[in-house]
């Protein structure tokens, strides 16, 4: 296993297969929690933590887990880490756990995580699987933070993550903060990604 392979598996999640744009997975949190950049970042980090841990452990146990019950084992492992995140945010990041609410336990059914276990971790070594998980997780974090920043900046006129309390517009385009705005913003962003990606001759 060479270093370049490691870099390749890590970096594919950041652009070539970035979720939820290129791999259309994990849409629910991408739409629901991205009202602010901060929430997007929090969700992204939580999901990355679960993804790296579960990918690593599943890869470590890949020779022990019987093929017939592998999905059940994956779900138990993933759910364990999700419950850990749930408890840690409740104890140490209370405000984040309040604003993400239901979507922290729902990381367990985030298709990206089970998807990476099935598509990658069960066939590859621990280090590679971790790199894959970290790359995918960071890509997801990047996407959520970006989408959150756009919706917060244009929809509420603030950007709390960078500028604190500062308000940029008095009359923001509040549509973007609402549910329909989330769908439209994600759809258009996806188009934009394809436009940029397309010109590179994908």
């Amino acid at each position: 296993m060479s270093a370049s392979r490691l870099v390749k598996e890590f970096s594919k999640g950041l652009w070539r297969e970035i979720p939820p744009f290129r791999l259309v997975l994990g849409l629910c949190p991408a739409l629901a929690v991205t009202t602010t950049a901060e929430n997007g970042l929090g969700m992204g980090i939580s999901a990355t933590f679960v993804l790296v841990c579960s990918n690593g452990l599943i890869s470590l146990l890949r020779k022990v887990i019987p093929n017939e019950v592998r999905v059940a084992c994956y779900i138990v492992i993933i759910a364990t880490f999700v419950v850990c995140v749930e408890m840690i945010t409740k104890a140490y990041f209370f405000e984040l756990s309040e604003s993400l609410g239901l979507f922290i336990p729902l990381i367990v059914v985030n298709c990206i995580i089970l998807g990476r276990a099935e598509a990658f971790a069960k066939k590859n070594g621990v280090l590679l699987s971790r790199a894959d998980g970290l790359g995918m997780g960071l890509g997801f974090t990047l996407a959520l933070t970006g989408l959150g920043a756009i919706r917060e900046f244009f929809g509420a006129g603030t950007l709390g993550l960078v500028f604190g309390e500062q308000v940029f517009f008095d009359q923001p385009f509040a549509f973007l903060q609402q549910a329909p705005g989330a769908f439209v913003a994600l759809g258009l962003l996806l188009g934009l990604m394809n436009l940029v990606g397309g010109s590179r001759g994908r």
């Binding site: 146990l61 887990i65 019950v69 084992c73 492992i77 850990c84």
Partner: peptide
């Protein structure tokens, strides 16, 4: 199958 599942569940229960 049984041992693998039970082992994972046990470890998870203890950790949590």
């Amino acid at each position: 199958m049984f041992v693998a599942l039970a082992g994972i569940a046990l470890a998870s229960g203890l950790a949590l």
